[in-house]
């Protein structure tokens, strides 16, 4: 606890670093995951195949392995990420976390899509909407109600998983604060306790925000 008070500015900057990492990863995971879900229900077999393969691979791989792949594997085949504020691991970390989380987002969105009665999409196709319009204007808005709770769990899991990205070498986020403080002589208990509290300061408000969003969607019909 003394670490949290004495080194408060470090915690604040770690807190902001984690927020930034999670914000980018969340945007990436939500966009990619929704796209993959659209692929999985598309009438085009190759797209369905891409969606299914992505989910199978990333949902069944340890996040650490995925991150290693993005940080060290991809550069070997010519995919070079730019640095972020001098940190080479930030973008590979964001990309790896997005790619991994997208698999879970995809499954949450897909189960939401499946909860919408088939007649809704049929009526949309029958009036001449394309596949994309049917999904965007009729199916996804109705899927949203069932998708928000599981999506919330996925996002909170992602925030916690972001610690692995920190352990990995993205300095300036919360988990890396622990390493810095231990090195500066604080006890592990004291510095990790501070880190745990700082994570709760993100995940608990996120949970409250999601509950609010759920209720808001509920009354909007």
């Amino acid at each position: 606890m003394d670490a949290l008070i004495a080194e408060f500015p470090r915690f604040v900057s770690g807190f902001l670093g984690t927020l930034r990492l999670c914000l980018f990863a969340a945007i990436g995971a939500l966009l990619l995951g929704t796209l993959l879900a659209a692929f999985r229900v598309s009438p085009v077999p190759p797209l369905r195949w891409v969606g299914t393969s992505w989910v199978t691979v990333f949902r069944n791989s340890p996040l650490v392995v995925v991150l290693f792949l993005f940080a060290f594997g991809l550069p070997q085949v010519g995919v070079v990420f730019p640095t972020f504020g001098g940190n080479a691991f930030f973008w590979p970390g964001v990309a790896g976390l997005s790619a991994y989380t997208a698999a879970f987002v995809c499954e949450a969105v897909r189960s939401g899509i499946n909860s919408v009665p088939a007649g809704q999409a049929e009526a949309a196709r029958a009036v001449g909407l394309t596949f994309q319009q049917t999904l965007g204007a009729v199916v996804l808005p109705q899927a949203l109600r069932t998708v928000v709770p599981p999506l919330g769990s996925v996002m909170i899991a992602m925030i916690k998983n972001s610690a692995i990205v920190g352990a990995f070498g993205v300095t300036g986020e919360l988990f890396s604060v622990d390493g810095a403080l231990t090195a500066a002589g604080y006890s592990a208990l004291s510095s990790l306790g501070g880190v745990a509290i700082a994570y709760l300061a993100i995940t608990i408000p996120a949970g409250i925000g999601l509950g609010w969003l759920e209720r808001k969607i509920e009354v909007k019909r």
Binding site: G119, A123, A124, A126, G128, L129
Partner: peptide
């Protein structure tokens, strides 16, 4: 096909109005 369907109206037994 979407273009053709736009010219063919369809009414279902279960109405299938867009619920939202």
């Amino acid at each position: 096909l979407a273009g053709l369907r736009a010219d063919v109206g369809m009414v279902f037994q279960s109405f299938n109005l867009f619920a939202h």
